Amino acid sequence: VGDQVLEIVPSNEEQIKNLLQLEAQEHLQLDFWKSPTTPGETAHVRVPFVNVQAVKVFLESQGIAYSIMIED
C-alpha cells in the first residue's frame, strides 16, 4: 500500500476553509492537484501513505465527502 489520491467534495464554504487549512499543514506533505474553490466541486489531493489515515479521520470528523481516486 502506498500513497493515495483522494477525490474530495466539499459541500459548503466552511468545508472549503477546512480543506485550505489542511493544505497549509506542511508536515502532512499533501499535494493538491486541484484545490477546493467552490462547494460541490471536486478537489484532488495526493496523500503520502504515512498520512492517509490522519487525513481520512480529519475529513470524516468534518463531514467532508471523499473517495479514493487512485490507490498506489
Rank of each mutant, 00 (worst) to 15 (best):
T37I: 07
I70F: 13
A24R: 12
A54N: 05
A43C: 15
E60T: 07
H44S: 08
E7N: 08
Q4H: 09
E13Q: 10
H27Y: 12
L59F: 03
M69Y: 11
V52Q: 05
E71P: 11
K56I: 14
Q25G: 05
K34L: 06
D31N: 14
F58P: 00
I68C: 04
L20E: 06
Q62T: 06
L6F: 15
I64V: 03
V47N: 01
T38V: 13
K34P: 05
V50W: 11
L19Q: 00
V50K: 11
T42E: 04
G40L: 05
G2S: 07
F49D: 05
M69H: 08
S61R: 11
Q25T: 10
S35I: 14
E26T: 13
V50E: 11
D3C: 15
Q53S: 10
Q4T: 14
G63W: 03
L59E: 00
T42Q: 05
Y66A: 01
P10H: 01
Q15C: 02
I64G: 00
T42H: 08
S67Y: 09
K56N: 03
A54G: 04
D31R: 15
V1F: 11
V57W: 15
P36G: 03
G40N: 07
Q15G: 02
Q15H: 07
I8L: 08
V9K: 09
L6S: 01
N51K: 06
A43W: 15
K17G: 07
S11P: 01
T38C: 08
T37S: 11
S67I: 10
A65D: 06
F58M: 05
N51E: 05
N18Q: 14
N12T: 14
D72S: 13
D31V: 15
H27K: 08
E13D: 10
Q29T: 06
V5M: 10
V45E: 00
D31M: 14
V45C: 06
N18W: 15
P10M: 04
E71W: 12
L22Y: 05
G40W: 07
P48S: 07
E23N: 11
V1C: 15
I16T: 04
R46S: 07
E13A: 09
A43R: 03
Q62P: 00
V9C: 13
N18D: 09
F58S: 02
D3N: 10
N12W: 02
A24M: 10
F49V: 07
H44T: 15
I16L: 12
D72Y: 15
N12A: 02
Y66P: 00
S11F: 11
N18G: 11
N51S: 12
A54M: 11
V45N: 01
H44Q: 12
E7W: 13
Q29M: 12
L20V: 07
L59N: 00
E41Y: 06
Q25L: 12
F49G: 11
P48H: 04
Q21E: 12
R46P: 01
E7M: 14
E13V: 10
E23W: 15
A24F: 08
Y66Q: 00
V55Q: 00
Q15V: 03
P36M: 04
S67L: 06
E26L: 13
E13F: 12
T37G: 06
T42I: 12
F32G: 02
I8Q: 00
L6M: 07
G2I: 08
F32Y: 05
E60R: 06
A54T: 10
E14Y: 09
V45S: 01
E26M: 13
G2L: 09
G2W: 12
T42P: 15
I16R: 04
D3H: 14
L6E: 00
N18M: 15
D3V: 12
I70S: 13
V9A: 06
E71G: 10
L30I: 11
Q53W: 10
S11Q: 11
E13S: 08
F32E: 01
F49S: 10
M69S: 06
Q29E: 07
W33V: 13
I8T: 02
H27P: 05
I16W: 06
I8H: 00
Y66D: 00
L30G: 02
S35A: 13
T42L: 07
D3Y: 15
Q21I: 12
A54Y: 15
V1H: 15
D72L: 14
E41W: 09
E23P: 05
K17M: 12
Q62D: 02
F49Q: 08
H44L: 15
A43F: 15
E41R: 06
V45L: 15
I70G: 13
S35L: 15
A54K: 11
Q53Y: 10
E13Y: 14
R46L: 09
Q53M: 12
L59T: 00
N51Y: 15
V5A: 04
Q4A: 12
Q29R: 12
G63C: 05
I68W: 05
E14F: 08
Q4M: 14
G40H: 07
H44E: 08
E23C: 12
P39A: 07
V5T: 08
Q62H: 14
F32P: 02
K56F: 08
W33S: 10
S67W: 10
V50P: 07
H44F: 15
F49H: 08
S61T: 11
P48G: 04
Q21G: 08
P48Y: 04
H44N: 06
V1Q: 14
E13L: 13
V5W: 15
S61E: 12
Q25W: 13
V9G: 02
Q29L: 09
L6V: 03
D72I: 15
E60H: 08
E7R: 15
E41S: 08
W33C: 14
S35R: 15
V47Q: 00
L30E: 01
I8C: 05
P48M: 04
W33K: 08
E60G: 04
R46M: 05
E23L: 14
P10V: 07
A24N: 08
R46W: 08
P39W: 04
I64S: 00
E23G: 13
Q53V: 10
V57F: 14
L30Y: 02
E14P: 03
Y66F: 09
Q15P: 00
K17T: 08
G63I: 02
E26K: 14
Q21N: 11
K56P: 00
H44R: 15
Q62R: 15
D72W: 15
E13W: 15
V47R: 00
P36S: 05
V45A: 05
L30V: 10
